[in-house]
Design a protein around this nucleic acid. Structure first.
Length: 286
DNA sequence: ATATACTCCTGCATGC
DNA sequence: TGCATGCAGGAGTATA
């Protein structure tokens, strides 16, 4: 399940390998319909073949290949996507669905067991990422801006964190980890969180994402980096998929529930429910 | 507008 | 043992 730290690890791995390389050809398994979202393969090939990759960026969970004609090839790994760099004559990857042939004898190999991943070429990067919220790790994101996103919302705080229009890059793993680090129950209505709780959450989101990057991502099942190697972050998770196991902080068994339609893991002792709707003085808009 | 349900697809764990 | 069921959870779309 590639989230921001996993996609960022892939970006860092691949950027030096693909920058300045020219795309020779594109091959896509005809059964992989989802990938091109209705765009004919020939259209995609015409967009990519002959183009030189200027840079490789990332926004939220999107990989953004900047092409030499000013356009952008956006790739989203969704749940089981992988993108690895391989010699052209290497055997196919497991569940390989597509490949991009480069001019130096290497390919970018696209694997995707469940075929949810998407590729698309856009005239501007904003077409892809314009609707995304700020990234929690953005140094320019202030605590006040962070808090404002939760104001007045009745949805569970977890659902707000997962909504890419609110914040970009968090997925199920890092949301559960951040809420544990902030000692917040995931089903707490977002608008009921105290200023102090939101301060903890602001710091926790940054910390868990930074730690995920430092550990080169979490490989619970499908994720591998740009070389095909697993990350290490799954060895350090506090609550995600630890149902029934003792909390590292207090020993209480970790519980599992469904919040916002997703499997959710939390410590019932460290993450106490909101006491009751907190009555706060009406605050003058600033 | 917001919040929720459903859908895409496949492998694997579970339970009868 | 075999087979059915449901779970995994990104995000676009549909619906209340």
């Amino acid at each position: 399940m590639p989230e921001l730290p996993e996609v960022e690890t892939i970006r860092r791995d691949l950027a030096p390998l693909v920058t300045g390389r020219t795309i020779v050809d594109v091959e896509v398994d005809p059964g992989t319909i989802h990938l091109l979202a209705g765009v004919p393969l020939e259209t995609l090939r015409a967009s990519l073949a002959g183009r030189t990759i200027r840079s490789l960026g990332r926004r939220g969970k999107y990989l953004l290949f900047e092409l030499d004609d000013g356009r952008w090839w956006a790739a989203h790994l969704r749940m089981t996507g992988r993108l690895v760099w391989r010699p052209h004559d290497a055997p196919p990857e497991p569940y390989e669905r597509a490949r991009v042939v480069l001019d130096d004898g290497h390919d970018l190999r696209w694997s995707d067991l469940r075929k949810f991943g998407t590729w698309r070429v856009h005239a501007s990067a904003d077409e892809v990422v314009g609707r995304l919220g700020p990234e929690p790790i953005d140094p320019g994101l202030t605590a006040a801006q962070f808090r404002r996103v939760f104001e007045g919302r009745t949805a569970p705080v977890k659902a707000v964190l997962l909504d890419q229009r609110r914040f970009a890059g968090l997925g199920n793993i890092y949301v559960d980890e951040a809420l544990f680090a902030a000692r917040i129950r995931p089903d707490t209505p977002a608008g009921q969180l105290s200023r102090a709780a939101l301060g903890r959450l602001y710091r926790a989101c940054r910390e868990v994402l930074e730690r995920g990057i430092a550990h080169r991502g979490a490989s619970f099942r499908d994720y591998v980096d740009g070389q095909g190697n697993e990350g290490r972050q799954h060895m350090f998770v506090q609550v995600f998929r630890r149902t029934g196991k003792p909390c590292y902080a207090c020993g209480t068994p970790i519980e599992r529930s469904i919040v916002g339609g997703r499997a959710t893991h939390y410590c019932p002792r460290c993450q106490r429910p909101a006491r009751r709707p907190q009555r706060r003085e009406a605050r003058r808009a600033g």
